[in-house]
Deep mutational scan, measured.
Amino acid sequence: MALNTPQITPTKKITVRAIGEELPRGDYQRCPQCDMLFSLPEINSHQSAYCPRCQAKIRDGRDWSLTRLAAMAFTMLLLMPFAWGEPLLHIWLLGIRIDANVMQGIWQMTKQGDAITGSMVFFCVIGAPLILVTSIAYLWFGNRLGMNLRPVLLMLERLKEWVMLDIYLVGIGVASIKVQDYAHIQAGVGLFSFVALVILTTVTLSHLNVEELWERFYPQRPATRRDEKLRVCLGCHFTGYPDQRGRCPRCHIPLRLRRRHSLQKCWAALLASIVLLLPANLLPISIIYLNGGRQEDTILSGIMSLASSNIAVAGIVFIASILVPFTKVIVMFTLLLSIHFKCQQGLRTRILLLRMVTWIGRWSMLDLFVISLTMSLINRDQILAFTMGPAAFYFGAAVILTILAVEWLDSRLLWDAHESGNARFDD
C-alpha cells in the first residue's frame, strides 16, 4: 500500500549564491595573561575582544583620537594649579581661619623630617597626573615632529594605576569627618577644581587605549598563520617573532617567553612588605597634641575612634588600611606557593584573586592621604596640633611594595603550573 505524501511548494523562490571570495581570516594573537594562541577576527570600533580561555580583555573598544586626548590633557593642565594650590577646605580653629590644600599637606610631611613619605604622596597625587598630561601632550606634538614615541607609550600603561586623584578625593571626605570634632569646616574653591580634575582624569584614563596608539604610530604586520613560536610582548602586546637582537619589532624591548626574574622580584617585594606591615600596624601612625597632652593612634585605634562619629567612614578606612593590605599579602603568598608547588586545582579562583588584588591594591594609600591633609588643617603649635607617627613611612612603603609585587608577577606562570593543553579552566 503506497502512502500519498503531499508536496510542499515554497511560496518564495530560494536563491543560492556561491561564495565568490575567501572568507576573511583572523590574525593570530597570544593572550598576555595566559599565553593562549588564538585567531582574533577583525574588530570594529566600539567592540571589545576577550581571550577565549581566561576571559582577559585583549582589545578595548573604547578609543579616543589623539586630538581629543590632547584637549583633555590641556584642560587638566589648566585645572591643576587651582586643584593643588587653592584651598580645598576652610576650618575655623580657636577663632582663626585655616586653609588646607594639597601642596601644603605634602610640605608639612616633608617639613617634619619625613621627606620619603611626603614624596610618596607627591608622586601619586601630583607627579603621576602631571606625567600623564605631559605624556599625552608629548605624543600629540611628537607625532607631528617625527619624534620617538616608544618610551612614552611604554610608560603610559604602567602609569595608570599610580594616578590616585580619586583616592585622594575620598581622603578629603575622611579628613573632614575627623577634623569636624575640633573645628567648623567649609569647602574651599580649590575643592571644585579638584573634583573637576578627578572627573576629567577618570574619563581620560578610561578612554586612553595605549594598544590602539601603538597600532597608529607603529603598525606591524600581524601573524596570519598559526605558529607556536609566536611570542607576545608584555610592553606593547604585539604578537610576532623577535628581531635579530631578540627584541620586539614594535617597542624594541627584549621579547622573552616569560617575564625575567618574575618570581624572585615578586618574592622579594612580598617578604619586604610583610616585614614592614608589622611596625606599620604596631607603631603610632598619627599623633595629636591637645592642650599640651599627647595622644597617639595606631591604624586600628584611629579607626575605632573614627567609628564613634561615623561608622560608615570608619568601615571604608578599615577596608583600605587593614583589610586590603593583608588580603593582598595572603593572596600573593598563596599564588606564589601554588606556582612553586605546581598546583593544578582552583586555577579559576587564583586568576580571579590576582585580578582582584590588581584592582584594589592602590586604595591602601588612602590613610597616607588623610594624614597629609589633616596635617595641613590642624597645626596650632602646642594648643592643638596633628602630626604623623613613625608607622606612616612603614605603611606607605608596604603598600608600594605590594603594588610592585602584583605588577611583577607574570600571570602566565600560573598556567605553566597548571596542566598543559587546557582550553578551559575551572575549579
Score class of each variant (00 low, 15 high):
Phe217Tyr: 07
Ala100Trp: 01
Met304Leu: 05
Thr201Tyr: 05
Tyr138Ile: 07
Ile172His: 04
Ala70Cys: 14
Ala2Glu: 09
Asn379Gln: 11
Ile274Ala: 08
Ala314Phe: 08
Lys13Glu: 10
Leu413Trp: 10
Arg226Val: 09
Asn379Lys: 08
Lys265Tyr: 01
Pro129Thr: 07
Gly188Trp: 06
Ala268Val: 04
Thr402Gly: 02
Gln244Leu: 09
Asp367Asn: 00
Thr202Arg: 15
Arg424Trp: 10
Thr5Glu: 08
Arg17His: 07
Ala128Glu: 02
Ile287Tyr: 04
Ser65Cys: 07
Gly235Asn: 04
Met76Arg: 06
Ala115Leu: 02
Asn148Ala: 03
Ala49His: 07
Met72Trp: 02
Arg17Leu: 12
Lys178Asn: 15
Pro151Val: 03
His418Lys: 09
Trp267Asp: 03
Ala320Ser: 06
Leu208Pro: 15
Gly292Trp: 04
Ala18Ile: 01
Cys251Tyr: 00
Leu154Val: 05
Asp63Asn: 15
Trp363Phe: 08
Gly171Thr: 13
Met164Phe: 03
Leu377Phe: 07
Glu161Phe: 03
Ile131His: 01
Asp416His: 13
Pro32His: 14
Glu211Asn: 11
Ile351Asn: 15
Lys13Ser: 11
Leu93Gly: 01
Val198Met: 13
Ile403Tyr: 01
Gly293Gln: 06
Asn310Val: 05
Leu409Ala: 10
Leu169Val: 11
Tyr182Ser: 12
Gly421Leu: 14
Asn422Leu: 14
Leu255Thr: 01
Ala56Phe: 11
Leu191Lys: 07
Val133Arg: 00
Gln29Leu: 10
Thr224Cys: 07
Arg158Glu: 11
Ala398Gln: 05
Phe341Asp: 05
Leu159His: 03
Val203Tyr: 08
Ile299Asn: 07
Asn291Asp: 02
Glu212Cys: 14
Tyr394Glu: 06
Ile339His: 07
Gly240Tyr: 08
Leu271Ser: 08
Cys248Leu: 00
Ile299Phe: 08
Pro41Asp: 10
Leu323Arg: 00
Thr298Lys: 09
Met76Thr: 06
Asn209Glu: 07
Ile299Trp: 15
Trp92Asp: 02
Trp408Ile: 03
Gly421Asp: 14
Thr67Trp: 15
Phe38Gln: 08
Ala320Val: 11
Cys54Asn: 00
Leu336Asp: 03
Met356Asn: 10
Cys251Leu: 00
Gly389Val: 00
Met332Glu: 11
Ile378Asp: 00
Leu354Lys: 13
Leu165Met: 13
Gly118Phe: 01
Leu40Ile: 09
Ile98Pro: 02
Arg258Ala: 04
Phe192Asp: 08
Ala18Lys: 08
Thr239Pro: 03
Ile116Cys: 09
Val210Glu: 13
Val174Ser: 13
Asn281Asp: 12
Thr402Tyr: 05
Gly346Asn: 14
Leu255Asn: 03
Pro6Gln: 08
Pro151Thr: 03
Glu21Pro: 13
Gly105Phe: 02
Phe326Ser: 08
Leu208Gly: 08
Gln180Val: 13
Leu352Lys: 09
Leu306Trp: 01
Pro52Gln: 06
Ser420Val: 09
Trp363Pro: 05
Gly20Asp: 11
Gly315Ser: 13
Lys178Val: 00
Ile400Tyr: 05
Glu211Gly: 07
Arg225Ile: 13
Ala398Asp: 05
Leu130Phe: 08
Ile288Asp: 00
Ile96Leu: 08
Asn291Gln: 06
Arg216Pro: 03
Thr134Cys: 12
Lys342Met: 10
Ala385Gly: 06
Val329Arg: 02
Phe38Gly: 06
Pro87His: 11
Ala405Cys: 08
Gln244Val: 05
Leu69Gln: 10
Pro284Ala: 09
Ile98Val: 11
Leu197His: 04
Arg59Tyr: 12
Leu373Phe: 02
Ile116His: 12
Leu283Arg: 04
Phe217Pro: 05
Ile91Glu: 15
Ile199Trp: 06
Arg245Leu: 05
Leu347Phe: 11
Glu211His: 14
